[in-house]
């Protein structure tokens, strides 16, 4: 598969506040991520990880620098345009799942389709697509369950199915295993690796060095700047072996 650049940031800055309260959450971050890459972001608390994720995920705009997503400069897009990018190009996975309460797994997975503005997608097609996604994450039996009837790991799978439904070019995961016990966390990581193997581009924040080491690259942030970038090529192979042993 021909590699193409998905994320290209040039001297990205994000400044909060003014005067004495001025905080540079991001201070000149330039990164480059290609299709099919699995990248981890690490760093101490307050180093700017979430800020970077929010900008890369088009939830907020940088105060300086450029961000080119999938060949399109999105640095200056307005709220409406950013919403469309989030809908079509990005799938989010949050630490706290962020599912709609008292809403079935199926309805939750279908949520992005409410805003896709694709007229050809009939109600039947949407249901079929959402059911397919839930099957893909191993929840075919649970499509009519509501979040409060599912375990943490299962809820995170629903969130992953939701992230996948619009076939995004980029999957953003901010500490996806942060709220899970190690077994459920492993299951979620296995799922993400499977998606990666199928060609997905994933950017993930984690505090766990072991989890980070199974990705291809780890970007270390400190005080809003890139401290170092570590390539974990061999470890990814190790991860595969570890999985096959299980």
């Amino acid at each position: 598969m021909a590699r193409r650049t998905i994320i290209e940031t040039i001297d990205l800055t994000k400044i909060y506040g003014m005067g004495d309260a001025r905080v540079a959450a991001l201070d000149g971050v330039s990164i480059h991520i290609e299709t099919g890459e699995f990248v981890a972001i690490m760093g101490p608390s307050g180093s700017g990880k979430s800020t970077l994720m929010n900008i890369l995920g088009c939830l907020s705009r940088p105060t300086g620098g450029r961000y080119i997503l999938d060949g399109e400069d999105v640095s200056d897009l307005d709220k409406v345009q950013l919403a469309a990018i989030r809908n079509r190009k990005i799938g989010y996975i949050f630490q706290s799942y962020n599912l709609l309460p008292r809403t079935t797994a199926l309805q939750n997975v279908m949520l992005p389709l409410q805003y896709d503005r694709i007229k050809e997608r009939t109600a039947e097609k949407r249901v079929a697509l959402a059911a397919k996604m839930l099957k893909k994450v191993g929840l075919a039996e649970r499509i009519q369950h509501q979040p409060q009837e599912l375990s943490g790991g299962q809820q995170q799978r629903v969130a992953i199915a939701r992230a996948l439904i619009n076939d995004p070019v980029l999957i953003m995961a901010d500490e996806p295993t942060g709220n899970l016990d190690s077994k459920s966390g492993d299951e979620i990581m296995n799922l993400l690796h499977e998606l990666h193997q199928q060609g997905a581009t994933i950017v993930m924040v984690t505090h766990d060095p072991e989890i980070a080491s199974y990705t291809q690259r780890t970007i270390h942030l400190r005080d809003g700047k890139i401290e170092k970038i570590v390539h974990n090529g061999a470890n990814e192979h190790k991860r595969a072996e570890k999985r096959s042993e299980k």
Binding site: G57, A83, R86, N87, L99, L111, P112, Y115, D116, N166
Partner: peptide
């Protein structure tokens, strides 16, 4: 917030 994150406009 959830709806906005999956593409809902204002």
């Amino acid at each position: 917030g959830i709806r906005q994150s999956v593409g809902a406009t204002p």
